[in-house]
Design a protein around this nucleic acid. Structure first.
Lengths: 211, 211
DNA sequence: AAGTTTATTTAACAATTGTTAAATGGTTAT
DNA sequence: ATAACCATTTAACAATTGTTAAATAAACTT
């Protein structure tokens, strides 16, 4: 009995260490924004769930109320919506960033956006209620939330500049440069959507590029 | 002396009442996001400065570190940057919203963006230090900041969808519908930039539109 | 391995938007 | 009022991107 207990403790610890290891990317990410001590971080360990999401599986579906926020530990997610019977991909999440159907997440209305896995993904999930709890009880978490969304907004504005000032070719080249792995792992139809052009146009453009 | 004192008190009060009146739009705006009591609001009255910015005057200049956040009480601001000797307008702020050169404001590095007045403007200004003070000392303000930036992010994503899925004509029509006043007060060259097309293309498009 | 599905490319033609240059219209300053 | 400046339109032509349809390539199933 004692030994079993010990055994259990041991396994538990091992599992926790393994989990902590999986939090490394998340910790690195949030440390850019707020100075967290080990103690601050503890407040989140219990609340984060680690899930594996297989390729093409849906993380948040159309019509669903978004209750989950994901941090992409491995793999690529995409955000799209159904438009005229077609899927329009608005975003491909780079590794080690947050993703959710934000309009639904903040308004708690049914989502028009779908989030699904482009490749097999490992996601760190935090539920909205837990996040709200953290926000309400730890000012540092609220600050973190604000800082992260500020950065996301700035990045979003950068993308708008790119639509205004750059040709599709330039946008593609810059994407290649910024996320070389993405092209390897993400089908071109999603890349094309992301760039705001048709798949065939992207294909033509790839052929004529001079390096 | 007594009378002078009384006079002064009277003027001061009147001025304060007048100022409060000017806060109405701001109060309405922030009340969408957080429930504020009169007391909560007091924490900001002293910190807000009301300025008049004449047409074409610059609010935040290139190279400057953005220290000010503006709420547009009257008039339109635009956000642009100098690209190849040309000014590229990324944003035209609708009435009663916040505007600053956010990349500079959050990073405290020199701004590549310029913010200037398209029309005569009345702006409610809050300084970054004061805002940081509010954020640090009143959780409600931090929450407000997060909620507002979340909304701005969602709006920004909507605009990215419009670049991906809509033609310039559709974008123009929707802009007209959403902000009918804007077209009256804002030169078309800025509208064209905002839509991501050239002035001449916008002009051609306006001619051929069927209503 | 053969067959099925999905991803990507190719090509011809259409539509949209950019480019250059000039004309017209409207405002502002002297 | 005239001149000077800025805003908008027009037009011809160029470049980019969309559309449709098909061919090829690659990945997945049985």
């Amino acid at each position: 009995m004692l030994i079993l207990g010990y055994q259990h403790f041991f396994c538990d610890l091992e599992e926790k260490l393994k989990a902590l290891d999986k939090f490394q990317n998340l910790i690195t990410f949030i440390s850019q924004y707020v100075d967290f001590t080990g103690n601050d971080l503890k407040s989140i360990y219990d609340k984060v769930e680690i899930i594996q999401l297989k390729k093409n599986r849906i993380f948040i579906d159309e019509g669903e109320i978004a209750e989950k926020l994901a941090f992409t530990n491995k793999g690529y997610l995409r955000v799209y919506y159904n438009f005229d019977g077609e899927e329009i991909t608005r975003d491909i999440t780079p590794l080690h960033t947050f993703a959710t159907a934000l309009p639904s997440f903040v308004s708690q209305k049914p989502s028009f956006e779908v989030i699904s896995a482009i490749t097999d993904c490992e996601l760190l999930i935090i539920h909205r209620n837990d996040l709200e709890f953290l926000y309400s009880n730890y000012p540092k978490w609220e600050r973190l939330g604000r800082r992260i969304i500020e950065e996301m907004f700035v990045e979003s504005q950068r993308r708008i500049y790119s639509f205004i000032t750059e040709t599709a070719e330039t946008r593609y080249k810059k994407l290649l440069k910024q996320y070389p792995d993405m092209i390897r792992d993400v089908p071109l139809k999603y890349i094309a959507d992301f760039l705001g052009i048709k798949l065939q146009s992207l294909s033509r453009l790839r052929k004529t590029i001079e390096w």
